[in-house]
Design a protein around this nucleic acid. Structure first.
Lengths: 271, 271
DNA sequence: TGAGCTCGTGAACATCCTGTGACCCCGGAG
DNA sequence: CTCCGGGGTCACAGGATGTTCACGAGCTCA
């Protein structure tokens, strides 16, 4: 989602900066201005999608700096935007790892377009590399596998179920309205009376409970929607649980068990 | 191998073509010259890394042609190299999917450098350690031989089949969506309803299973795509099984078998 | 406490997806 | 020209998944 980017501009030309910043604001891209050479580490920590840089501010260090930066951050889009230059300079810059070279004076719109173009290329290759596992309670959500796990065991979610848990967990702690859930998962607005969200929440709850019975993950907010938050249940007195249960469950029996546990929890005051 | 590229130049400026061709020869890039607009399909079949194009030769069709091409071949690097233009035109071209825009007259060296820069971005994903054998389970994938082996015996994969296993195994553990597999193997975007990926997965599975029956390599993720991971089928001691599982297995029922074994494993140890 | 809405539940139903085998096309070799 | 292997398409069938429905329990408010 979100084609909102994160970029930095390394330049001192106040006119250029002002115009460009205004455009960036309107695009709603996160951006910051740097006034002088910044150590590579610092750039790393900014987690940028792209960097626009005027080599002039770097002085004689420019080439070395550029080379180091590009070597250290091959995923970073680097667009050089600088004054008049020779072919040799441009070729050198591009060979060192710059992704584009724009000659000033230039129109900010073109800068934007070229940055987008550069990032578009990156995105393609990096698309799934950014998938970082999330965890909540006992479950771990792994986008790279389109699946959630408890320990090493897959919960065996379907595509929609996974999308749902991914969405909910991304908003952990916040209540998401049905409408929002629906429109983010289905892509269009929910018609009144549609129960799809509820149904998938139920399926998801079932699977979560089966895989991680001691936790509650999805909480209903009456008249509003759902909230995702891992909450462990009070430990139930073992003597209450008949020892015969854990042995082998027939395909239909988990439900019974789940219900029994629910009753117990209710009784013990967990809610 | 392989900073040797395959590019095409769509232009009519004989001087430009001559100079550029000479440079390309020296770089030992495969290249060809096109004199007029070429249907997208034709470009697809050329299996290019990049295309340099002068929009002037395309006439009024230029924008449509460019848009179609970039949409169909997201992996193709497109560098527009054309005469004087307005900012609006350049922005438009870049937004439509062009990766760079060079204004003539220009130095061929800069064209080369920009093409390289564009391709460098693309390649990142494809730049796995070429020619380094990978192994998974019983199979060894040898890019240098364009073939996979079990022990010393070749699995006898065709070109596409090999490309597929190479792609999948490079992403071992991750789920690859059909669209991604398709676009990386065929080079252009998949049309809905295309079953090519499935068919090649089947062919590959057949050969893998024949060569290495005790392992499963390619796992289906319903509604998403495939995941490559070597998993050995624990061979269950036949004497353990028969009485407890009354069902008779038909000769072709490996799927049943696999499932049953999975169940057993679940039941026997893991919790 | 009761009406009215909301939510959980199970199941039926419709749809979509995938595995599969058969078939067609094409370029190269004989 | 014909044969052949590889690549790609098609239609079918079984299964997995998504969607809808009806019913009952739960929550809120008067």
């Amino acid at each position: 989602m979100s084609d909102s980017l994160r970029i930095a501009v390394l330049d001192r030309d106040s006119g250029f900066l002002q115009v460009l910043s205004k455009r960036l604001e309107r695009l709603d891209w996160e951006h910051r201005v740097l006034a002088s050479a910044v150590p590579t580490d610092a750039v790393v920590s900014m987690r940028l999608s792209a960097l626009v840089v005027d080599l002039a501010v770097l002085g004689p260090q420019a080439w070395i700096w550029l080379e180091r930066l590009c070597a250290a951050l091959p995923e970073l889009g680097v667009v050089v935007c600088t004054g008049p230059s020779t072919v040799a300079q441009r070729v050198r810059g591009l060979r060192l790892g710059a992704d584009d070279w724009i000659t000033k004076p230039c129109h900010p719109e073109e800068v934007i377009a070229r940055v987008q173009s550069v990032v578009r290329g990156r995105r393609r290759s990096a698309s799934r590399a950014e998938s970082t596992p999330t965890s909540a309670g006992e479950v771990v959500i792994r986008p790279d596998r389109y699946q959630a796990f408890v320990g090493e065991r897959s919960i065996d979610l379907t595509r929609r179920e996974f999308e749902l848990i991914e969405l909910l967990s991304a908003a952990e702690g916040r209540v998401l309205e049905r409408e929002e859930i629906y429109s983010r998962l289905w892509g269009y607005t929910m018609v009144r009376g549609d129960r799809s969200v509820d149904v998938f929440v139920r399926k998801l709850r079932q699977k979560l409970e089966k895989a991680s019975p001691a936790w509650r993950y999805i909480h209903t907010h009456f008249g509003i929607g759902y909230r995702f938050a891992a909450e462990s249940l009070e430990v139930v007195d073992p003597s209450d649980v008949p020892s015969s249960i854990p042995v082998e469950w027939e395909p239909g029996d988990e439900r019974e068990l789940a219900r029994a546990q629910e009753q117990q929890q209710l009784a013990s005051g967990a809610l």
